[in-house]
């Protein structure tokens, strides 16, 4: 019977579990926060608030479930609240709704033909990181969770609080936009496949 265990002892066990299960995800939560805020100081605030909330609601965490997913969900909510606060100062209009409509349109043409050569010639890391940063938030969060953090569609859907089909359409649209950015990057860098000898 838990009733016979002193409250202080229960608290110690809980605190220890938080330390062992939640705190090791600090780097991951920071990376995810930074991908959303794109500003280190804002990410700093979001991470602190995320862990404080997580600790206070630790009793709601289901032992054995994915702690990272749970923390990311809190982190996303903290970020949205922060953005909501900023929106009262800057009016963004219905940008997200328009983008969502765009994402649900039939998938755009693959840029395979044009891009095939580029991928084999260039170190894509820096160009991709910049392109991810420039994606509209709705697409960026899906790409970061699935493609960078390696989550399944249903996990990402749970973090973002949207249906799995929405994750899929946002993800696919985001990927196409990234591929388009790579084509532009390659052209600007003079890396088009037309004259590979000059690369």
């Amino acid at each position: 019977m838990t009733g016979t265990v002193p409250a202080a002892e229960l608290h110690r066990v809980d605190a220890r579990r938080f330390e062992v299960e939640a705190l090791p995800w600090l780097d991951d939560v920071y990376r995810f926060a930074l991908s959303m805020t794109r500003d280190e100081s804002d990410a700093d605030d979001v991470v602190q608030e995320t862990f404080l909330r997580a600790y206070r609601s630790w009793h709601t965490f289901e032992p054995g479930s994915e702690c990272r997913k749970w923390l990311f969900t809190i982190c996303r909510n903290v970020f949205l609240r922060l953005r909501e606060r900023d929106r009262r100062r800057v009016d963004y209009g219905g940008e997200d709704a328009q983008l969502e409509a765009l994402a649900s349109e039939q998938e755009t043409q693959s840029s395979f033909g044009e891009n095939a050569e580029i991928l084999s010639h260039v170190d894509l890391g820096p160009a991709l990181e910049r392109a991810i940063g420039e994606l509209p938030d709705v697409f960026r969060s899906a790409v970061v969770l699935v493609d960078v953090e390696g989550m399944a569609y249903n996990e990402a859907a749970s973090v973002l609080g949207v249906p799995v089909g929405t994750i899929r359409s946002r993800l696919f649209r985001g990927r196409r936009l990234l591929q388009d950015s790579l084509v532009v990057f390659a052209r600007d860098a003079g890396l088009t496949a037309r004259d590979p000898c000059e690369v």
Partner: peptide, 11 residues
């Protein structure tokens, strides 16, 4: 290439 951008990005 996308997955590789994860790198270690420690807090």
């Amino acid at each position: 290439a996308l997955a590789a951008t994860r790198r270690e990005h420690p807090a």
